[in-house]
């Protein structure tokens, strides 16, 4: 079912990198991958590597999961990247008690149920105060 843009996105992830589309007209990043810029509906989109830095926008600790093949609890989250886009993800290497809105996070690629996905871990040390 994957379209070309989605395929490119997941190919970059296999290299451990998060790439986003950038519209040359609007001069803005966009997410999720697509054929046309949602700002101007033009196709002047180029791929750029994300710095992988962002902040927790909101989160929910999932305690009950109806698809049985995953370990609860885990932290489902929306993260806003420094590039300005927001994506759904998980927060990893962080206890449910420690996660909070606006927490500084950085991207790592991990396998979830066998699929490589971008997830985010807390930024260590002083950087989280930035």
């Amino acid at each position: 079912m994957c379209d070309d843009q989605t395929r490119i996105y997941y190919q970059h992830l296999k290299q451990g990198e998060l790439w986003l589309q950038y519209c040359l007209n609007c001069q803005e990043h966009t997410f999720y991958p697509r054929s046309h810029c949602p700002g101007c509906l033009d196709q002047q989109l180029e791929w750029r590597k994300s710095q992988g830095q962002g902040r927790v926008y909101s989160y929910s600790i999932i305690h009950v999961q109806s698809l049985a093949d995953d370990d609860v609890p885990y932290i489902y989250s929306l993260v806003t990247l420094d590039e300005g886009v927001r994506l759904a993800t998980r927060i990893v290497d962080c206890s449910p008690e420690a996660v909070h809105v606006d927490m500084g996070v950085e991207m790592v690629v991990r396998a979830i149920n066998g699929q490589l996905m971008p997830v985010f871990k807390p930024v260590a040390g002083l950087k989280s105060q930035a």
Binding site: M1, C2, T6, F31, Y32, S60, I62, V64, Q65, S66, L67, D70, Y74, Y76, L87, A88, T89, R90, I112, N113, Q115, M117, V119
Partner: peptide, 14 residues
């Protein structure tokens, strides 16, 4: 399906 489901949200609840 492509960009949310892999993280296993609990549907509308989440």
């Amino acid at each position: 399906i492509d960009f949310e489901l892999p993280y296993l949200p609990m549907g509308f609840n989440t």
